[in-house]
């Protein structure tokens, strides 16, 4: 279980660019929850994910993962609990290193790294098996450099890397937004297979309202650094895009004016 209590974060404090990106954020994520996150530009979706991952220190509040207070832990220490896939397909893999090297780096997420050989022989079988799940033929290309792969392939590998060692929480930050529609659909299908198949706990930011409604068991909507709408179960099942737009206007008191979201309904 992940618990976020009264978390706030202000960027550029004391300057003209001051912005309260997270404003008294509260969220409880139960084990096995697959939560989709929507909201306009600058609503704080990515900031929330980054705050959970520890990319920057928060100003106040508490973040607990399975009862452990990680609020003051740096990013690399929280990596033990968290798997991540970024929006930019280039960001999640090391281009100059081989596919199997990338996987072996991910296989040791959160573990102490010593002077043992970076890939043990028996690991290769695991990597082959996992790669074959992607259905991209990458299991035959273990020693190819990741830089040779397409953006979609790289994103699929990143997804595999983030879940290779079961994370307590998987953070997906618009991880299909930079891909072409067909590839995005493939990566999204893989995401569902992995998250639902292994009953992972995940937060997925998306700009696509249909996806947000169709995927997962919970949905949260953010605005100005807070969660303004939080549904789960049957109520979420019955949601429509119109409902979401209406909710947004009702909760935030402003007209929904995000081209990307309106276009993608």
């Amino acid at each position: 279980m992940i618990e976020i209590k009264n978390v706030s974060k202000t960027f550029n404090k004391g300057t003209v660019n001051e912005k309260r990106a997270l404003d008294n954020l509260n969220l409880t994520i139960n084990d096995g929850d697959f939560i989709t996150v929507i909201g306009g530009n600058g609503a704080g979706k990515s900031t929330m994910l980054n705050a959970i991952a520890g990319v920057f220190p928060v100003d106040c509040g508490k973040i607990e993962i399975d009862g452990v207070n990680v609020t003051r832990d740096p990013e690399f220490k929280r990596a033990k609990y968290i798997g991540r896939v970024f929006q930019d397909p280039m960001k999640g893999t090391a281009a100059g290193m081989q596919i199997e090297e990338n996987l072996s780096l991910a296989y040791r997420r959160g573990k102490r790294r010593g002077l043992g050989w970076q890939i043990k022989a028996e690991e290769r079988e695991i990597y082959k098996k996992e790669l074959s799940r992607l259905g991209l033929g990458l299991e035959e290309r273990l020693t190819d450099r990741v830089g040779l792969l397409s953006g979609g392939q790289r994103q699929a590998v990143t997804l595999l890397m983030a879940t290779l060692k079961r994370p307590q929480l998987l953070l997906l930050d618009e991880h299909t937004a930079a891909l072409d529609p067909a590839t995005a659909a493939t990566v999204l299908r893989l995401t569902r297979e992995i998250v639902e198949g292994e009953k992972l706990t995940a937060l997925m930011v998306t700009h696509n309202m249909k996806d947000a409604i169709a995927i997962g068991n919970r949905l949260i909507m953010m605005d100005r650094g807070s969660i303004i709408y939080n549904v789960s179960g049957d109520e979420k099942e019955r949601l429509t895009v119109e409902d979401l737009l209406h909710k947004f206007e009702e909760a935030s008191g402003t007209e929904f004016s995000n081209d990307r979201m309106i276009l993608s309904r």
Partner: peptide, 12 residues
């Protein structure tokens, strides 16, 4: 190669 990635994988 990719500092963001390896930090997210738990390396200081």
């Amino acid at each position: 190669d990719n500092a963001d990635m390896i930090r997210a994988l738990g390396v200081n």
